[in-house]
Design a protein around this nucleic acid. Structure first.
Ligand SMILES: [Mn+2]
Ligand SMILES: [Mn+2]
Ligand SMILES: [Zn+2]
Ligand SMILES: [Zn+2]
Lengths: 140, 140
DNA sequence: TCCGGTAGCTGTAATCATTACAAGTTTGCA
DNA sequence: TGCAAACTTGTAATGATTACAGCTACCGGA
């Protein structure tokens, strides 16, 4: 379901994107951290391993990956873009208490109103907010 | 379907929110401009009528209105919050060409995945992106 | 092997939406 | 009228993102 490195590399090559060392590391991070990290998280975590990494490079890499469709970007509520290696259509739930972002399955494809009959839809987003089960039980 | 001033005033009173002159104007603007305006749009338009208006007041008013649930705020893609007087559940479509934001009907309420069985859902958002019919025909 | 060009990386400065804050103003009420 | 609380205003600070200029690494041809 989630793409392997080999597949990602193939995709990059197919789109004429050079896979530099830094880009590899960002991609690797997204594959290993499917928690919808922010630029700040990605950057500060990778900095431990790559002390010379620049935040600009992280931004540039994420822009390229998003433009070529290998990564999905989203802004859920707050003013910090989050990144997701899973580009399949799925919904997101953000807990207002612990701020975790959960994935959930949703049948977005069969989900089209008559109002949009003549629209060309390129992108579908569904996100909910509320309290997650963990936080609900902790409150009691 | 869309609330009248009288109703809005009632709601404000019920929540112990004082309806100052500036707040009235912001509310009025949102009722009359259902195009999901940004703070900048609201502020610069109202400035013509109220030369002493402060942008901080617009921000503060929108925060209060959002907190009390009279207005819905959203960030669709770009980094500018938009405001909507229509708080009923509905979907949004943003045209990537003319940047207009359209409303569309969507049955969000009957729209809940089993993955979220134990979650407390407080808020549901659906937004699509693509090209609107007007821009599609203009291209040809 | 050497060289030149280009893509990529880095660090800093600029931009822009939003928030914080302090001071002035209005409002409601005694 | 007079005071306190609520509002408004203008400016400064914050923080994410982008622009930009200089440096570096890599790659293909002589
Ligand atoms: Mn996801
Ligand atoms: Mn709307
Ligand atoms: Zn939680
Ligand atoms: Zn359009």
């Amino acid at each position: 379901m989630t793409p392997s490195f080999a597949e990602l590399k193939q995709n990059l090559k197919a789109k004429n994107i050079n896979l530099s060392f830094q880009r590899l590391k960002v991609l690797e991070y997204l594959v290993n951290n499917r928690c919808h990290p922010s630029v700040e998280q990605i950057f500060s975590d990778l900095l431990k391993e790559l002390p010379t990494l620049s935040k600009t490079t992280v931004y540039n890499t994420l822009r390229i990956l998003t433009e070529t469709g290998l990564v999905r970007s989203m802004t859920i509520d707050d003013n910090e873009t989050r990144y997701d290696i899973n580009t399949k259509n799925h919904g997101h739930f953000k807990c207002n208490s612990c701020h975790t972002i959960y994935d959930f399955y949703v049948d977005i494809d069969n989900f089209c109103s008559d109002d949009l009959k003549n629209f060309k839809i390129e992108n579908k987003n569904v996100y909910f907010m509320g309290i997650c089960p963990r936080c609900l039980t902790n409150k009691e």
